[in-house]
């Protein structure tokens, strides 16, 4: 049987709260990045904004499915709405959870891919045609992995961890290139925590406690990101 939820009973609902925090942080930074794009018209800010919106979409999907699972009134309402698709007595309800998980996977992996590309410096990129080919290859692999991950939960988090590792490396380079900029260090640390969280999600089949640790680490990552954002917004001189 394919398992999608590893939350210990005592943690039910708390992971929803943690994910909502992440969702809000992503939307805040996405909004500011979009504002910067409107001012200077540089596409990388629009792409970064899009990436964070995709992460937020992934969180939204996870929050929704978890909420449906944990909260009976919500489950009853959703069951009523989805009965034409999920069949009598919700015999095909697993399709709903699989579809939502697919949305979470596809949007989150797409987001990490975009963040990886925009966090690279221009000199590290290939010439334009090759860059398009590189993006197309990644998009194909992303689609393939998303389809495969629909059968293996840990494959998604393994892929996510690999891409996040590359992102952390990019941000480490950025930290060095900006001569030790404190905010650049914080961004690197935030993605490092998100990476560690994903590591724990890979091994969640061993113990549900690892899910709690993973969620906590991801939350810390996004809180560091939120703190960095507030520091940037506060800058006046």
């Amino acid at each position: 049987m394919y398992r999608l939820f590893y939350t210990p009973t005592w943690f039910n609902g708390w992971d929803v709260v943690f994910d909502v925090v992440g969702l809000i942080v992503c939307l805040l930074i996405a909004a500011y990045s979009w504002r910067v794009y409107r001012i200077n018209r540089e596409n990388k800010f629009a792409y970064f904004s899009l990436a964070l919106v995709l992460v937020a979409l992934g969180f939204l999907s996870k929050v929704f499915t978890s909420s449906v699972l944990y909260f009976t009134p919500l489950r009853d309402v959703v069951a009523e709405v989805l009965q034409p698709f999920t069949g009598p007595r919700l015999s095909f309800s697993s399709l709903f959870y699989r579809a939502a998980f697919f949305i979470q996977m596809a949007s989150t992996l797409a987001a990490w891919i975009v963040v990886f590309f925009v966090s690279q410096k221009a000199r590290a990129r290939l010439r334009r045609f090759h860059e398009v080919a590189q993006i197309a290859l990644f998009a194909y692999l992303l689609l393939l992995i998303t389809v495969v991950s629909n059968f293996q939960y840990y494959v998604f988090y393994l892929t996510s961890a690999v891409i996040l590792g590359l992102i952390v490396l990019n941000y480490f380079k950025n930290y060095l290139n900006t001569n030790g900029n404190r905010n650049a260090l914080l961004v690197m640390l935030s993605f490092l925590f998100i990476l560690f969280g994903n590591f724990f999600f890979i091994f969640v089949f061993l113990s549900t406690s690892l899910y709690v640790v993973g969620e906590a680490l991801v939350l810390i990552g996004f809180l560091i990101l939120l703190y960095t954002y507030t520091q940037v917004k506060r800058r006046k001189d």
């Binding site: 500011y32 990045s33 910067v36 001012i39 200077n40 540089e42 990388k44 800010f45 970064f48 925009v118 966090s119 410096k121 990019n170 941000y171 380079k173 950025n174 900006t178 900029n181 905010n183 650049a184 914080l186 961004v187 960095t228 940037v232 917004k233 800058r235 006046k236 001189d237």
Partner: peptide
């Protein structure tokens, strides 16, 4: 000036 400094800090922090 203040807004541009914030934008530059954002760009440096997020490696854009």
């Amino acid at each position: 000036l203040a807004e541009f400094r914030r934008m530059r800090e954002f760009t440096d922090a997020f490696g854009l």
